[in-house]
């Protein structure tokens, strides 16, 4: 069963994240948390998504016909954990930290993996383009907010994160647009 392998993979990612040195290293910088820990938690959840029993997936699919419910759930939960306030709280309050470690895989990564394929290609396109523009906006925010938004991190880290996000947006944009140009097999060669 390959499903199990995915589950192990997800668990492996999470296990690495909780290793004290890794944890300390990631949480010592804002970039580590925002662009390291959070994405990896989401990826772990994505992998868990493949390991769910088929029956359960089928049942979920009745509720998630076009993938939009899953997508919306993932977006709102992710947004919540990206709020500077939640970032602070998850570092300082053990209960919220636990909530974050449960919610990001189970309510962001997993719904995404269950919904992504079901989404209409246009919906996926919107997610792509929106991710790019929102990364730019967030990067700009971290660069231009005159005060520290996270009490746990220095202003310089916040600015570094902002620059990193904009760089990431550019890379993603380049990557996605390249993909549009790389040929898949057309229905028929360009004779039409």
């Amino acid at each position: 069963m390959s499903g199990k392998r995915y589950a192990v993979g997800g668990a492996f990612f999470m296990a690495i994240l909780v290793l004290p040195p890794v944890l300390r290293w990631m949480e010592s910088s804002m970039i580590g948390v925002m662009l390291g820990q959070i994405p990896v938690l989401v990826v772990a959840g994505w992998l868990f998504g493949f390991a769910l029993p088929r029956r359960f997936i089928e049942w979920l699919n009745c509720w998630n016909e076009n993938g939009l419910p899953g997508l919306l759930l993932a977006i709102s939960v992710l947004t919540f954990w990206l709020l500077p306030r939640s970032v602070d709280a998850s570092l300082n309050e053990p209960l919220l930290r636990l909530a974050k470690w449960m919610m990001l895989p189970l309510l962001v990564g997993m719904p995404l993996s269950l919904s992504w394929k079901r989404l209409h290609p246009i919906a996926r396109g919107i997610v792509h383009t929106n991710a790019i523009s929102m990364l730019v906006v967030m990067g700009w925010l971290y660069l231009s907010v005159p005060v520290r938004v996270c009490n746990s991190y220095l202003l310089s880290q916040q600015n570094a994160l902002g620059r990193m996000m904009i760089a990431l947006a550019i890379v993603l944009a380049a990557f996605w647009s390249l993909r549009l140009f790389v040929a898949t097999t057309p229905n028929e060669p360009t004779t039409r």
Binding site: P121, L180, F181, A183, T184, P186, N187, T190
Partner: peptide
């Protein structure tokens, strides 16, 4: 874009 890629394979095409 989706429809063009579908028909011709990529935007490059």
């Amino acid at each position: 874009s989706r429809a063009i890629i579908r028909e011709y394979g990529s935007l490059g095409h």
